[in-house]
Amino acid sequence: MSSNDIKDDQGNTAELSLIALGQKLQAMAQTGLTFTKDRYDIERYTELRDIAAQFMAQQFSADKLHFAEEFIKQQGYATPKVDTRAVVLREGKILMVKEADDKLWSLPGGWADVGDRPSDAVCREVVEETGLVVRVERLLGVWDRNLHGHPPYPWHVYKLIFFCKELGGTLQLSEDSLDIDFFDPQKLPPLSLTRIVPIEIESSLDIIKNNKETWFD
């Protein structure tokens, strides 16, 4: 399989999307600028970064300056970002959070911070977003955000989904959440697809119910 190939949910090979190609351009420029000492290579990688910003702006119908500024902030060897999400069950229902920015629902979670263990990151996000104290029971899946129907996004993201056991606390809203509730998995509310998609929830619940192996891309 070539470097420009990926596999979809059915395991079929497909060409990288234009967004994924833009992500690769940005990553190549960032990594090149991190390691090169040659002034001509610095000029080339800086130009490549500018091309990546222009390319992404076209894909998102947005201002090139926005992407240029975001790309300049990124330094060091380019790697995917890490998003952690929690599956918390109560009497067969799944915990969901209504996000303030798009007014749609997601599993509680968010970005892992530098210095966090992944299990600590997801537990912190749950208590911050919902008020519930949880403990990680197991890792359910490692998902490549590019492959499963999420809306386009400038950054390449790995999503870590954990099964978490409720230990205590009480449900309470945060600045980032408009509502919190437990839902029947067969009657989920409208999902914040930039954060979670149905296949990720369905597969996670199937893994828990049938004690299957961890999913990974």
Results as ranks from 00 to 15, higher is better:
S17P: 00
S17D: 00
L18D: 10
A20P: 07
L21W: 10
G22R: 00
G22N: 01
Q23G: 03
Q23F: 02
K24W: 09
K24Y: 08
L25C: 10
L25T: 02
L25I: 09
L25Y: 13
Q26V: 06
Q26W: 11
Q26C: 02
A27V: 03
A27G: 09
M28L: 15
M28R: 15
A29D: 04
A29I: 07
Q30L: 02
Q30T: 15
T31R: 01
T31M: 11
G32V: 09
G32Y: 07
G32S: 02
L33F: 08
L33T: 01
T34M: 11
F35D: 12
F35P: 01
T36D: 08
K37A: 09
D38W: 07
D38C: 11
R39F: 05
R39Q: 08
Y40A: 11
D41Y: 12
D41V: 02
I42D: 02
I42M: 06
E43M: 05
E43F: 07
E43H: 05
R44Y: 03
R44K: 05
R44G: 00
T46E: 12
T46H: 13
E47F: 12
E47T: 05
D50R: 04
D50H: 07
I51N: 01
A53P: 06
Q54H: 05
Q54I: 04
A57V: 06
Q58A: 13
Q59Y: 03
Q59L: 13
Q59F: 05
F60Q: 04
F60I: 06
F60Y: 14
S61N: 12
S61I: 07
A62D: 10
D63Q: 01
D63T: 00
K64N: 14
K64H: 11
L65H: 15
H66A: 09
F67D: 03
E69A: 14
E70Q: 15
E70V: 05
